[in-house]
Design a protein around this nucleic acid. Structure first.
Lengths: 132, 132
DNA sequence: CTTGACATTGGAGCCACTACAGGGTTTAGG
DNA sequence: CCTAAACCCTGTAGTGGCTCCAATGTCAAG
């Protein structure tokens, strides 16, 4: 498949894919006669892992290393540093859930109206502070 | 309180706070005689909302607008655009949960080692893929 | 009166893209 | 065959949101 299709299937841009490649994080794909990049099905799964790790905000380099090793079934070679990073990200995500609950309370009426698309009416009376 | 304490209580850096201020997203705080920024208790809650919205990856400008309006109890003035943005972010977060479950499967055995903090066996190769 | 932790400013640097310029290729329709 | 749109290529510049740094000031403790 060509780069556009790959990008679509992953929900990222062609620019991002080329950027990863320039950085040497992706194996350069074959080129068809016209010079277009030509990807196989396996690239989808491999990149999906990378994309997922990036959504956890793992730094690009680490995400790429990890997804590359995993794609080759060589997870035993993943460094302690990398494994620690993941463990951290998982805890961070848990913390974010809590934070989201806090936001839920503060944005409760906004949120409700968001679902229905109605105009807001209620006032919040917390932390009233006038500037000046 | 001074900027360092405020930053600590929010889990962000003093640099971030000054950056927000330079951008005009925060009301400039009073200064004590020595020129140090001097914040009141109310700033903590107000900024906590901003920080939370940023963790949802709401663009800084929107996060600031929203938290500022909410802090003043003027949620009725929140624009439709902004409300749509939040609704989107909430859905996005739900999608990320799904993605996390996918990652869970792919990283399952890594996860096991993460808990125990076991040592890796080999060095990582430079990501060159080879099937042979 | 020095040491160290904190504060100030302005500016440079960084990460991960994103947008754009200036081109080439493919494909659908006329 | 011609054209237009939709795709692709390379390279470079720009962006958002900080982060780090230098040079300097302030203040409490020893």
């Amino acid at each position: 498949m060509r780069i556009g299709e790959l990008a679509d299937r992953l929900g990222i841009t062609t620019g991002a894919i080329r950027f990863y490649e320039r950085r040497g994080l992706l194996v350069s794909p074959a080129r068809s006669g016209n010079g277009y990049r030509d990807y196989g099905e396996d690239c989808v799964e491999r990149l999906r892992l990378l994309v997922g790790l990036r959504h956890l905000d793992l730094p690009l380099g680490q995400a790429a290393q990890l997804s590359s090793l995993c794609a080759e079934g060589r997870c035993d070679e993943v460094s302690a540093e990398l494994r620690a990073a993941i463990a951290n990200k998982r805890r961070e995500l848990a913390r974010r859930m809590d934070e989201l609950r806090y936001l839920d309370r503060r944005l409760a009426h906004l949120g409700g109206q968001l679902e229905t698309g109605e105009a807001p009416r209620t006032l919040i009376t917390t932390g009233k502070e006038e500037h000046g």
